[in-house]
Nucleic acid binder design. Structure first.
Lengths: 338, 338
DNA sequence: CTGAAAGCGCTTACAG
DNA sequence: CTGAAAGCGCTTACAG
């Protein structure tokens, strides 16, 4: 049997049926692996499979999905790829989806609410079975849109109030990180606090939770935190650099940085100041971890977050709920003061 | 008009047609924007659009694509997201595809040849219009598979011999980087070379090109490079760390590192050696750029690479060709020796 | 052990 | 200005 019909049209089950002298139904069953159930002879099955192979047959998914009830497409919207945390989430989401025989489609929405909705609409048009909104600025709007189309959603990283959410335990991790920076600032710089908090948006759920943890740790030590020590200037590196430049003075040489995105700006600025400083950062980056002034980084447990996400997807929970995942605190450069 | 039929089935053009008392054909034309051509009255068009809106109509793409000749799906396979270079490629590929009204589907294939082929097959099943193979271990096999299905391919980052390729000018950039490291090693450490080359696979096209640039720069200075100075131990950080540990002695305190992935291992190892050292790295990472021993990083021009990629996609070139894009050399920590 | 037939939701000539 | 009808390539009861 040789390859035929290279003329534009792709091979279909009808072509295959003609070639092996069987019905399209039989070919379809063989190709779907349901042929044993249909008690098709192994001989015919082998002929079909061989023909499919030599003809380079590829099933037309569009046609297949049109007929079936479930698409096995799982969608994800995510703010960025170009960042270790989100990059790892995207990678693992894909790997886990494939393990389960699902087809992952990920869209990067740049923290833009309009792009998020546009991406959700697109995934609805593709009849995705479910959609994971990662770090969405408006997860509830996405859920509403999807619910109308009968698509379930899960919120990841940032919680929503209309669907199950899987997020990091930001408050606890921020408390631990704050304590670490306070200790190391005292030991290595002789600075007794309070710390400076830089990055994020005050209105943002995660920044709020981290700020609470930050304040709790201070209060537990009887430290008051003046308002000017909290610089929620957004996540962008340039914004942080500018905000620090605007400070009357660097109120503290020990700093809690709210994300690695922000950290790029913070370090660029501090580097030019010719002062001793220490910082800790919420989020993990292997190169940032090598910076000598870095006392520790919070590493969110991407593995556990995605395990939980798929557990929710596979369960029937659709109502609001929030699952908090513990983070790991990576203590860094601990021997530096020797 | 109120939302109806929340019962499982989604709204179709037939539902809409019944609601506005028109034919499915008319509804379809309105929804496609071809209604003016079909001279449908604006009044009817408005009624259709309003009904679609209140019913939360979402076009079934599967059905639509099944009927049309072109899917507007553009696929990409890429080794990782979790890396600044590939993360940026993925992000920009998506943005550019959307700008053009195409639907990007990206799959992360972990430098695994089998996964690459499986992903290509999947994209063929979805009837993608074209596929970009980024850093594929076997781009020609992917091209072969796609060609059989009538899908065009473009190779990005790593060239193939059966389709157009867009790659960085690795050789020139490596030569420049080598010269920079040689200069700075001499000025800052009093070391006159030769350098150590770490990372990558000797069989890999890009490593080969970079190695050529590395050697040219040495030869131009009359420097011989002994074999043991070239450690092509793979890209993985752990491999690099181990390979360096196996060296009888650190043959050179000035090092050419072949990727940021490798760099993680190199720096972890060097940090423990308690020696002066300098390095330069092929690939850009903003945090790695902040490391004091880093004299420079090559930043591949992702913008230009993707511009060129889409130019190829939109042209009719299908034959083999290689377009080389110049890289930028970021000189770092230049004031450190003062 | 196997096939004929209906139908998924669209698009698009074709015929007014 | 508009509709009836065919057909894209599958899947799946249904009927042997």
């Amino acid at each position: 049997m040789t390859r035929q019909d290279t003329s534009g049209r792709r091979t279909t089950i009808y072509d295959l049926a003609r070639l092996v002298d069987a019905s399209p139904s039989a070919v379809s069953a063989v190709l779907n692996g349901t042929w044993e159930k249909r008690r098709i002879s192994r001989k015919l099955a082998d002929r079909v499979l061989e023909a499919a192979d030599t003809q380079g047959y590829a099933r037309n998914i569009q046609a297949s999905l049109l007929r079936r009830e479930t698409s096995h497409i799982v969608g994800m919207i995510i703010p960025k790829y170009d960042n270790r945390y989100f990059g790892a989430i995207a990678e693992q989401f894909e790997a886990r989806a494939r393990e389960r025989g699902l087809f992952p489609v990920i869209t990067c929405t740049q923290r833009d609410p309009d792009l998020e909705l546009a991406a959700a609409r697109e995934l609805i048009a593709y009849r995705a079975d479910c959609l994971v909104s990662t770090g969405a600025t408006n997860p509830d709007r996405v859920t509403e849109l999807c619910a109308a189309a009968g698509i379930r959603t899960v919120n990841l990283d940032l919680p929503g109030s209309d669907a199950p959410s899987v997020i990091s335990d930001n408050e606890a991790a921020a408390r631990d990180l704050t304590n670490l920076i306070l200790d190391r600032g005292r030991d290595e710089l002789g600075w007794n606090g309070p710390l400076l908090f830089v990055g994020g948006r005050a209105s943002d759920h995660n920044t709020g939770a981290r700020l609470r943890g930050f304040l709790e740790a201070h209060h537990a030590r009887g430290l008051a935190v003046p308002d000017e020590n909290v610089v929620t200037c957004g996540y962008a590196a340039a914004k942080a650099e500018q905000a620090l430049g605007n400070l009357a003075s660097l109120t503290s040489p020990a700093i809690f940085v709210n994300s690695t995105i922000t950290l790029e700006g913070v370090v660029r600025w501090l580097d030019k100041q010719d002062k001793q400083y220490r910082f800790g950062c919420f989020d993990w980056d292997p190169f940032a971890a090598l910076l000598k002034e870095n006392v520790g980084m919070v590493q969110q447990d991407v593995d556990a977050m995605l395990d939980e996400t798929f557990e929710v997807i596979e369960s029937d929970d659709r109502g609001a709920s929030v699952k908090r995942i513990a983070c790991r605190l990576n203590v860094l450069n601990a021997g530096i003061s020797d």
